[in-house]
Design a protein around this nucleic acid. Sequence first.
DNA 1: TAGATTGTTAATCGATTAACAATC
DNA 2: TAGATTGTTAATCGATTAACAATC
Lengths: 208, 208
Amino acid sequence: MDRISKAAFRRLPRYHQILSAFEELGREYISSRELSEILEINETLVRKDMADLQIRGRQNQGYGISALRQRIEEFLGLQDVTEALVVGGGHLGTALATYPGFEHYGLKIAGVLDNDPSKIGSMIGPYEVVSVFRLASMIQKHQIKLIILTVPKDSAQELTDIAVNAGVRAIWNFTPRELNVPEGVRVRNEQIVGGFMALSYYLKNLSE
Amino acid sequence: MDRISKAAFRRLPRYHQILSAFEELGREYISSRELSEILEINETLVRKDMADLQIRGRQNQGYGISALRQRIEEFLGLQDVTEALVVGGGHLGTALATYPGFEHYGLKIAGVLDNDPSKIGSMIGPYEVVSVFRLASMIQKHQIKLIILTVPKDSAQELTDIAVNAGVRAIWNFTPRELNVPEGVRVRNEQIVGGFMALSYYLKNLSE
DNA sequence: TAGATTGTTAATCGATTAACAATC
DNA sequence: TAGATTGTTAATCGATTAACAATC
């Protein structure tokens, strides 16, 4: 059904963020020109993206912000609830389990797991930390399709295997490890340090 | 001097990660074939990237892992130390301030700042939390070129302005807000929720 | 009306891939 | 030698941009 280019797909979160911000300010329309300037991309590209989303603008006014935001949400499936388990209750897991605003995107944290006996039973935000040994059973019980992986890299693959066997179909991977998964399971790697590398290159070449 | 394509540039962190992992295992060479399979990209593309980095492989053996890793580090400037301030001492700021392994990339956290009086003076890992009012003076004192921004989105722009005026040249932005910066200042946006959006799309379209 | 803006097509640009020669 | 592999060129593919007609 819906088809947009990979490159356009990657721009959707940024469009969404800008639209939400303008909406909060009470703005109703935004032109391709404005969007293009904020994102530092070409104006025509914005219009092409809108056309791909089957969104039509208005001459002289631009695109309806609210309709456009909702269209992106619909396209990405953000209007349905996705339940996820946070696997790893360290600082990063805690940050993600309590991240403000995930609920606006349909992301609901169903629980937090950890392997440290001293953490199990303690609270992380509203969640009581559960033993990682219960990973498979929790996935099955709640029909979880997504896990958020924030464990030390040496246990990343093992836990992935358990989760996939239990029925998980997507892994949001915050560990610095490439994961091996069977066909039909999607991994999204958030290699934190990658962002720093890009900035490091820039800083190193400042003087030139 | 060094010139590689944008697309190749974005692949460098992933190459680096794989090379480090293989190096730990004691492997000395890796072929373009192996790299291409792990990254799920074309074999020729790997060889082109290596050529762009001016790295030469060996017939029948592949590329020297250690030399290649070092070449990437040199290219990205990871061998020099970059000092950064973490601005925002919430869960995410804490996670980043104490992230294990940043030092391997030359990233040194010089301090953590927060605006919450009850946090100031407390410890986050080895860092005593400092008032955000001291942002400009700390930047100047330590000649900081990079800040890691993990504050609530409503104060993001204000703190950015202060940091830029004080001499910061790069901002690693973990807030869900597009920042306005003058020419010559680089922003890297880590829109956390963007990663989820891609997975949400996948999960929504599973059955098709 | 003139100006601002969308929407679309064709041209261009950049990235990836196929083909294949070179060589250990 | 045969097989495995790199390195490079040319072909292809995909994404972006320029040009411009349409229209409110």
